[in-house]
Computed example of a mutant assay.
Amino acid sequence: MKTKITLFSIIFFISLLMTSCGAEESLSNENTIQSFAITKGSVTKDFSIKENIISGIVESTFELEDINLNVSIPKKATISPDPATIKTINGPLVFVVTAVNGEMKNYNVDIKREPSTDNFILEVNVKTSNLLLNVAIDNEKGLVTKRIPEINDLKNLNVEFKFSKYATVTPDPKTIKDYSEPVSFTVKSESGAEKIYQVKIEHMNSFVSRSCSEANAWKWFGGDNRTNAPDILPYDRNVGTGQVVIVDKNLVPSTFSIHLNTGFTYDENRQEYNKPLTLKLIVKDANLTILATTTTEVPGYFNGGFIPFDLKKFNLYLEANKSYSFYWYLVDGEKLGVSAGSSASTAAGSGFCYNTGYSGQSKISKNNSLEDESTWYKHDWHFNIALEGKE
């Protein structure tokens, strides 16, 4: 009996030993990278694998930053470093793949970005005390040109540049302040291609004058003393005029003038006022932000014509093809009760003289003012104005 038990134990031990050896022999030795790809945004690029080398060149526009690696290895094998931790490739990489049985294999990754050929000036801005002026760039001719207000010193300018990524520039724009003469810059691409730009900044010193004087209509302007007008109390309302101004070239305005067809009178008895008056001008940009406010004195002998507002002290800068709203009204028009007529044209047309007109009306009884944007509305007429300045 004892002999049978001992024999059974020996057979059982041998069986366990054979099972253990079989398990060791079945451990996988697979330690290869089966596929390798890089994803950036919505673009994925696959790379070939030759023995233990993964290499390739991507386009210069395919940045090897902020990327995701997609790497396939055999089941249960491991890879180091973890591809999920690699977000930038800026040189050779080594990955180690370890099979289940512990065998390791190194893979050398050498993926590069093609050198960029871009050698452009992308953006130039001149920073002044109150303006940021964008500069025109002709990449084909290599010309950068800008005319800026005369108040700025060309020998001490703050000019900011943006260049093609990876490009280098000589001289260093940060060291250049004097643009009283044209300045040449050489932009060199990452691939070595060079392009020369000439930067030419000049003063806006060409005097220009525009005038809109054709009139076939006249709108009430100023106060109202009438006692018999429907729905209007005497000495209650004040009527102002406005006009959108759009210039075709950048302009520093010096004078803005409005036109009234007559002197100021009391409408009810047609008595002439014959005393000095004050008109106020408000200038706003397209967002209705106030750019300037000023007044001008109208002499008592005024009997019609253009009335100028001096804008020189404001150093305004009107950008080409942008809308600016000019509003003007009689100061204390409600209390004074005198009026004149804003000259206008009802004809259709295009250009400087045919932009949108405005009219505004405030009332003491409503406790509002022509300083309030809500008192103004668009008007179909084009009011007579004149504009002088330098471009």
Rank of each mutant, 00 (worst) to 15 (best):
K200N: 14
T145S: 12
D178I: 02
I148V: 08
R210C: 09
I137Q: 07
A99I: 05
V126I: 13
V126Q: 09
I176M: 10
E123W: 08
D118H: 12
F185V: 11
I151P: 01
F207S: 14
F120D: 14
M204S: 12
N152S: 04
S211F: 06
E202Q: 13
N205V: 07
E202P: 08
Q198P: 02
N134F: 02
S189Q: 01
S129E: 15
V187Y: 07
R210I: 09
L133S: 12
S191Q: 05
I148Q: 02
N158A: 00
T175G: 00
P173A: 05
F120I: 08
V97G: 00
F163V: 06
F120S: 12
A99L: 03
G102R: 05
F163C: 02
S191I: 01
D110G: 10
L131M: 03
S164H: 01
I148L: 06
N108H: 15
T168M: 03
Y197V: 15
D153E: 11
N106Q: 14
K195A: 11
R147I: 00
I201A: 11
A136W: 03
V126A: 08
F185C: 08
E160P: 00
S206H: 10
P149G: 11
T98N: 05
E123L: 11
K200G: 14
L143V: 14
F120K: 15
T128I: 06
V159F: 00
R147K: 13
S180L: 11
K174D: 15
G192A: 10
S206I: 05
G142P: 01
V183A: 10
R210D: 12
V199A: 09
V100N: 00
V199T: 15
E181I: 06
N156W: 01
Y107A: 04
Q198I: 13
D178F: 07
E190K: 07
